[in-house]
């Protein structure tokens, strides 16, 4: 054999298992000890006491003196048949101290009571206002109230979900709708339809203004010895436009020159816008009057 056992070992083992081995004879020759009689009496007392009371009632304690009839079978002690194993017997030993004071239904009952308390607390927390309860037809029955409440909550939740869905759909529609057109602001001042004519008029105006300014400068530098009365006379004789160009109307000429620069620089739109602003600011200016008069009228367009 691979494990070192010989056929003779196997034969000896077979003899031993068949109780034909001299080992068994030798073992029987050892003094056959027995448990002490005190132990026998104690165990037998336990066995007798166990039949006189329920199974869980501490069978390991010596029984109290009892009448002889106590050993008779007790119908109440009969339990439903179940397989008892060695493990079962050990389990019994673990709970043999308190079983009489701890019924088996105690734990399930405690669990059930805990569940009921938890459910009650939950119901009380979820219970609506008394008016709602009175209006609820299922409020008379607590269980019906619970179901009605849950149904109402479910309906409210569905309704809220539907509202949210509708709002979402509306928002989606709004988002998908075309953007409104930008606001149109009506022009407040005169419009420049014929920009070229206006520019030509501005150009002539500025040329004239420059000529007038040059003349005034020349007159001032050449007539240093003139009397003040002469100066007043010449000034009074000068045209109003020349006086304006050389004095108060100077910013007017600068804005006109700027309009010309924009137009000549290739920005006719900006030039037109600036011109319209100029026409509003200098509404009473002769050049403004002339430019407005030179613009085509709507009736002219209609006639054309």
């Amino acid at each position: 054999m691979s494990n070192g056992n010989t056929p003779r070992d196997e034969a000896e083992l077979e003899n031993f298992l068949a109780r034909q081995s001299p080992l068994s004879t030798a073992y029987d020759a050892i003094d056959p000890v027995h448990p002490p009689e005190v132990l026998d009496a104690k165990i037998l007392a336990i066995a007798k006491g166990a039949t006189a009371k329920p199974v869980q009632a501490g069978a390991d304690k010596p029984p109290a003196p009892k009448p002889a009839a106590a050993s008779a079978p007790l119908p109440a002690a009969k339990a439903p048949p179940a397989r008892a194993t060695a493990a079962d017997a050990e389990d019994d030993d673990e709970d043999d101290a308190p079983p009489a004071r701890r019924p088996r239904w105690l734990v399930p009952a405690a669990l059930a009571a805990s569940v009921l308390v938890a459910v009650g607390v939950g119901i009380s927390m979820l219970d609506p206002a008394p008016s709602d309860t009175a209006a609820d037809p299922g409020a008379t029955n607590p269980l019906g109230s619970l179901f009605a409440k849950r149904a109402r909550e479910r309906r409210e939740a569905e309704k809220a979900a539907a509202e949210v869905a509708a709002a979402d759909s509306q928002e989606a529609e709004v988002e998908l709708a075309p953007l409104p057109p930008p606001p149109v602001f009506e022009p407040e001042g005169p419009q420049v339809e014929d920009l070229d004519t206006a520019i030509a008029m501005i150009r002539r105006e500025l040329v004239l203004a420059n000529q007038m300014a040059a003349m005034a400068e020349e007159a001032r530098s050449g007539d240093q010895a003139l009397q003040p009365d002469d100066m007043t006379t010449r000034a009074a004789a000068a045209p109003v436009d020349a006086m304006g160009t050389a004095g108060v109307i100077q910013p007017r000429n600068r804005r006109l020159a700027k309009i010309l620069e924009l137009y000549d620089g290739g920005n006719p739109d900006l030039a037109a816008a600036s011109l319209e602003i100029f026409l509003r600011d200098f509404e009473d200016d002769p050049i403004s009057q002339r430019i407005v008069d030179a613009q085509p009228k709507p009736t002219d367009v209609a006639v054309e």
């Binding site: 002490p36 132990l39 104690k42 390991d60 397989r83 079962d88 030993d93």
Partner: peptide
Amino acid sequence: AAELFQEVWVRIIKARERYEPR
């Protein structure tokens, strides 16, 4: 030995009603 011996018999006594000879 006596202690273990008694424990075995006590367990047998307590499990007597659930004993099933299998």
